[in-house]
Design a protein around this nucleic acid. Sequence first.
DNA 1: GGCGTATATACGCGCAAGGTTATGCGTTAG
DNA 2: CTAACGCATAACCTTGCGCGTATATACGCC
Lengths: 100, 100
Amino acid sequence: MDVFEAVAEPHRRHLITLLAERERTAGELVDSLPSLTQPAVSRHLRVLRETGLVEVRPDGQRRIYALKPEGLQRIDDWITPYRRFWRTHLDALRQHLESE
Amino acid sequence: MDVFEAVAEPHRRHLITLLAERERTAGELVDSLPSLTQPAVSRHLRVLRETGLVEVRPDGQRRIYALKPEGLQRIDDWITPYRRFWRTHLDALRQHLESE
DNA sequence: GGCGTATATACGCGCAAGGTTATGCGTTAG
DNA sequence: CTAACGCATAACCTTGCGCGTATATACGCC
């Protein structure tokens, strides 16, 4: 699975958001997604691991997950060429508004 | 389907890339993806339409597709908060290299 | 009108993704 | 030492996606 597919799943985006605030244990993440069971969250975390979006560090019995945001850079790299499109659109709109 | 899922499909990313260069008819796009049949491409274009990533304009018998890059902005908006993470990482790396 | 071309839709299929329940395995607590 | 905890994996089920084939629809031309 590649980064685009990994991020396409809403629960996984949620996990990324949570880990952007701070590191969390697997258990904390499970508690943060009450609509899912523990194995479901565990599997999402595996996907995020395998796509290089998070990293794990054992802490005794627990596992501490941390964001590796460099993975998202691959998406950003792909979008970058298109960014100028809507930027110029917005610029044109702004100019239009200012000219009135 | 949302924008993230739309863009998760490699063929659809390819279509977006092609339409970023210039507008194209459906037939041109079909020819540009030789590994897919005409109906397959047509359905991908439907997804891109329904997620607001492209727009269509009839030209007699043909249909001209054009990119609506604003749709990608929703992805960009989501990524924006994370961008500072790898930026600071890269800055740190650059500083490290320069200090040698 | 009738026929070829351009594009979209219908239908059926295979497969992988995501979910749950059950279970394994290492670690901590008592 | 053993029972409970924390987490991952296994096995299974269901659903939705992406594909191809076949068919419909719309337009352009003679």
